[in-house]
């Protein structure tokens, strides 16, 4: 089965966009990732990933919502497309499958 490949960070970003729903743009996404994962991410890395996801068709974007602290510049809001949602679902399904396939003693070792 042919699947779109999602890198680990791409997956994180895509999920974050999905979490933020209508308020997803560069700054919020970065802050959200930092808050959720506790890891510090480079601003340009997030932007790069967003662009790549958009090119793959998992995200769509629109411009809008200028504020004073941005010096009147507009934001690029991102939204997850149907293909994006499908990709997320697939990833999740693969994960679940893999988890389900774990032998019980391994699960016990992991403390779960």
């Amino acid at each position: 089965m042919k699947r779109a490949f999602l890198g680990e960070f791409e997956e994180v970003v895509l999920l974050t966009v999905a979490i933020l729903d209508e308020g997803a743009y560069g700054v919020t996404i970065t802050q959200e990732i930092e808050q959720q994962t506790g890891r510090s991410v480079g601003f340009s890395t997030v932007h790069t990933t967003l662009q790549r996801l958009e090119e793959k068709g998992f995200l769509s974007s629109t411009m809008g919502g200028a504020t004073a602290e941005r010096g009147g510049r507009r934001k690029r809001f991102f939204a997850v497309t149907a293909a994006g949602r499908k990709a997320l679902a697939e990833v999740k399904q693969v994960r679940t499958q893999l988890w389900d396939a774990l032998p019980p003693q391994t699960l016990q070792l992991m403390g779960i």
């Binding site: 700054v27 601003f43 010096g71 510049r73 507009r74 690029r76």
Partner: peptide, 8 residues
């Protein structure tokens, strides 16, 4: 967008 995000 880049500049705006950076400023914010």
């Amino acid at each position: 967008e880049v500049l705006g995000d950076l400023h914010e």
